[in-house]
Amino acid sequence: MSILLYKVALLMYAAVTLLSLVAVVRNRKNDRSRSRLFLLLAFGVHTITLTVRYFEAGYTPVTNLHESLSFFAWALAGVFMLIDLQMRMQVMAAVTSTIVTVFMLFGSLMPMQTQDLNPALDSFWLPVHVGLAFMGNAVFTVAFVAAILYLIQERMLKSKKFSALHYRLPSLETLDRVNYRCLKFGFPLMTMGIISGAVWAESAWGTYWSWDPKESWALITWFLYAALLHGRLTVGWRGRRAAIFAIIGFCFLLFTFLGVNLLLPGLHSYSTMAG
């Protein structure tokens, strides 16, 4: 049941991607509101999917790669819609929904069946730790999108050569503010995600930190974002530099999420393809 729903959600996200791209190209108000409505619908179906899977599996469905991707995509769509409430940016919608669709597509290529829960994961900390971590990831993904768009817009303004995108992209200051705002929300989420992981590790394995690859890479990513936040608050890092940082940070984040699971064996490796 949840697998079928997942496929429906995937198709709907694909439709949203298409609609929002059309809205960017044509730049018409009707298209924009339609793509927004479809995103809301897709998100609704996805939410139902996760709920159904929760009851089918009997645990929070974030234990293998398929489930993680699904949850990541869901969090990303949700976070984006929250930001979109305040600042409407069609190009951001198009790029973000593309990423959501790619995650969903990737997730559909993984083994999707529910299986018995690994006893190590059977804990109250599972939803807390994973939920916080992925919320943080989702927020940073939005920051990444804003950063890419910032660099495009900045390049056009500096070189004085404008493509049609120039007219459709928001202002530099707006994009930079999205970046900053995401950092302000994403960083605490990520920090709490890591701390909750440590606390869980202490209660499960008796040690807060065991330097497994996921932990190390998460820490490196955390330091990157900490540096960016520090730079912003003290010396006024902003604009181009902040955008580049957000992009590098996202690359590390993606590697921590996917690369570590697929390439490096460690304590977190139950969340690989095999599940």
Binding site: Q153, L157, H166, L169, P170, S171, L172, E173, T174, R177
Partner: peptide, 8 residues
């Protein structure tokens, strides 16, 4: 208009 693309 350019100012609007630099400042929000």
């Amino acid at each position: 208009e350019l100012a609007r693309k630099i400042f929000d």
